[in-house]
Simulated assay, not measured.
Amino acid sequence: MQIGANSLLQEMQSLSGEIKPSGLNSGFGSPITQQVSNTSGSDFGQLLSQAIGSVGELQANAGSLATRLDMGDTRVTLSDTVIAREKASVAFEATMQVRNKLIEAYKEIMSMPV
């Protein structure tokens, strides 16, 4: 499964909509208008699992392109390899940022008085 830039942005905005109050901006300059209709835990877990799987696929694709380029495959260009590596890098960085925000939110909830 390939993650496009628009679909990744939409997923991040919808996740941001769950965390932030609706009056705040999403960080991209526009108010959040998308709302998540189904917020059950299994669906979130499945979405997270798919996102991590997609990042893994992007990394594997970038690795295979780099290997094919190193082996002298004439069908693989240097620009394709660099673009694939950058896509994998951006996707991994976005995943790490989501993970950091989830951990931060968990710590904040756990420190709340009961």
Results as ranks from 00 to 15, higher is better:
Met1Leu: 10
Ala5Glu: 08
Ala5Ile: 14
Asn6Asp: 12
Asn6Phe: 07
Gln10Tyr: 05
Met12Glu: 01
Gly17Phe: 01
Ile19His: 04
Ile19Gln: 04
Leu24Ile: 11
Asn25Phe: 11
Gly27Pro: 01
Gly27Leu: 01
Gly29Trp: 04
Ser30Ile: 10
Ser30Gln: 14
Ile32Asn: 13
Gln34Leu: 10
Gln35Ala: 10
Asn38His: 07
Ser40Leu: 04
Gly41Trp: 04
Asp43Gly: 13
Phe44Arg: 09
Gly45Val: 08
Gln46Val: 14
Leu47Phe: 05
Leu48Trp: 07
Ser49Lys: 10
Ala51Pro: 00
Ile52Gln: 05
Ile52Thr: 11
Ser54Gly: 14
Ser54Phe: 05
Glu57Arg: 08
Glu57Gln: 10
Leu58Trp: 02
Ala62Ile: 06
Gly63Leu: 12
Leu65Val: 03
Thr67Val: 14
Asp70Thr: 05
Asp73His: 11
Thr74Asp: 06
Arg75Glu: 10
Thr77Trp: 00
Leu78Met: 06
Ser79Pro: 05
Asp80Arg: 15
Asp80Trp: 03
Val82Pro: 01
Ile83Ala: 15
Ala84Met: 13
Glu86Val: 07
Glu86Tyr: 14
Lys87Thr: 07
Ala91Pro: 02
Ala91Tyr: 08
Glu93Trp: 01
Gln97Phe: 02
Leu102Gly: 15
Leu102Ser: 08
Ile103Ala: 15
Glu108Arg: 13
Ser111Met: 12
Ser111Asp: 12
Met112Val: 03
